[in-house]
Structures are given as structure tokens and as C-alpha cells.
Simulated scan of single mutants.
Amino acid sequence: MREQVLALREAPFPEKVFGARWQRSGHEFLLESPLGEAEVAAAEEELGVSFPSTYRAFLLEVGAGGAGPYYGIFPLRHDGQGWHWVDDSGIRSDNTLLGQAFPSVAERARWAEELDAREPVEQDFPDDQSYLAAFRAWDDEWERLHASMTAGAICLSHEGCGYYTWLVVTGPERGTLWIDLRAADGLLEPLSAGPHRVDFRDWYLSWLSRATSQAHGG
């Protein structure tokens, strides 16, 4: 798989593959070096999770990140602050919720409904200042809820326009991938092929097949 990806750099039409050559965000069909078994095990121990088998195999045999669907796979790296993923803006992941179970669709809907019902109403406050203070506190709750909705999942890839792909590592949905459409007031939705949920291997191989065809003029 690694050799197939790197070979696409020499294909006749690599620019036809979305995200490969897009200004500074393009992955250019480059892959970071694979991690060793000891490194992956150390990352799992520090983060308090066990990576799904197909993603774990990718880290060990293909690369720690780089070329992949859309703008590529966010790399898993280690520095003086420990193991983390780095997004396409260079921002480190926040792994504090990674060990919590990924919430169900029903849980996310209930949380949003309950918080929405608590929105401050201006008429209930004696002045603008007190209303604005209450509204800001309520808005901060939305920020925390937004993060809680992806607890137990790794942000893998930016699809563009603020849409992201998440890999669940904790809870009943472990191993499945989800598309995050909240930037356009959408939902977190599972990736699926017919009745089956898509895992990391399915997702990556589907992209590689499509990218190979596009890069060769298909």
C-alpha cells in the first residue's frame, strides 16, 4: 500500500486527485515514516486507548500520517508534550476525552435539545449586561458540548469546508468512521457501504483505488 501511494507522485495526472496538490494543504502523495511496534504501544498506553486493528496496521506498515482521503491523514507524533495528532493548521489534538465512550446518536440529540432549551431569554433579565453575561456562559456550554460529542474518537482528516472524518476508538462504535458536518449545521453521521459501517481499511483502500484511477486519467 505504501509503495502504491508514493508511486502516484509519478502518475500522469496527480493533480486530478482532490487534496493532493492544493496550495499548502496538499499532501503531495507523501507519507510520514511508519511507527515501530514499541512506539505504537507507547502511544496507546499514554493515551489510554487501543487503536482499532486496521488503523494500527496502517501506523505500523504504511505511515504515521500523510497522503490519504481529502487533504490527507493527520499524523500521530511524539514530542516533549507526549503523543498527539496534528491537524492541517498545525494544531495539536486535545486527547483529554479520548478514553470516554463515543456517544450514541440519541445521546448527542438529547444533550443538544436540553442545552438548547436552556438558552437565556432576554426578557428574563433586568438589563442587557446581565443578559449578555448569561448568554456568553450558555454559549461556552455549547463549546464544551461540541467537544463532548466526539469523545472517544480521533480526528483523522479534513474534508474541506470545515468537515472532518473521525475514527472511533472507545465505546460500542469502536472502529467505525464518522463524517462531521456540524460546520454547516449538520450532524455527525456514520460512513457506511450499504448496511455495513466503514472501517479505516475500507475507507483508505477505497480512496487509493479512486486516486489511482484519477491520477492515471481514469
Rank of each mutant, 00 (worst) to 15 (best):
H78V: 02
R182G: 11
Q81P: 00
F18T: 09
I154P: 02
F102I: 08
F29P: 05
T150Q: 10
H78T: 02
S130H: 13
R201D: 14
Q81T: 05
L167Q: 03
P120D: 08
G66S: 09
P126D: 14
E46K: 07
S25F: 14
W85T: 03
H216E: 05
S53D: 14
A151S: 15
G72I: 01
F125S: 10
P14L: 02
E10T: 13
R2D: 13
D87C: 00
Q100H: 06
W83K: 08
L167H: 05
T150C: 07
G80Q: 06
D180E: 07
L208W: 02
M149I: 03
T54W: 00
A11F: 08
Q100M: 08
G26W: 12
E61Q: 15
L156I: 03
M149K: 12
A153D: 00
F58S: 00
A184G: 12
A38E: 12
P52V: 07
H27Q: 11
A183K: 08
F135N: 12
S213R: 12
V168C: 11
V40K: 03
G66N: 12
A20W: 09
P75F: 02
L187S: 12
L35M: 09
S33F: 02
A38G: 04
R136E: 15
Y70A: 15
G186S: 13
S213L: 15
L97V: 01
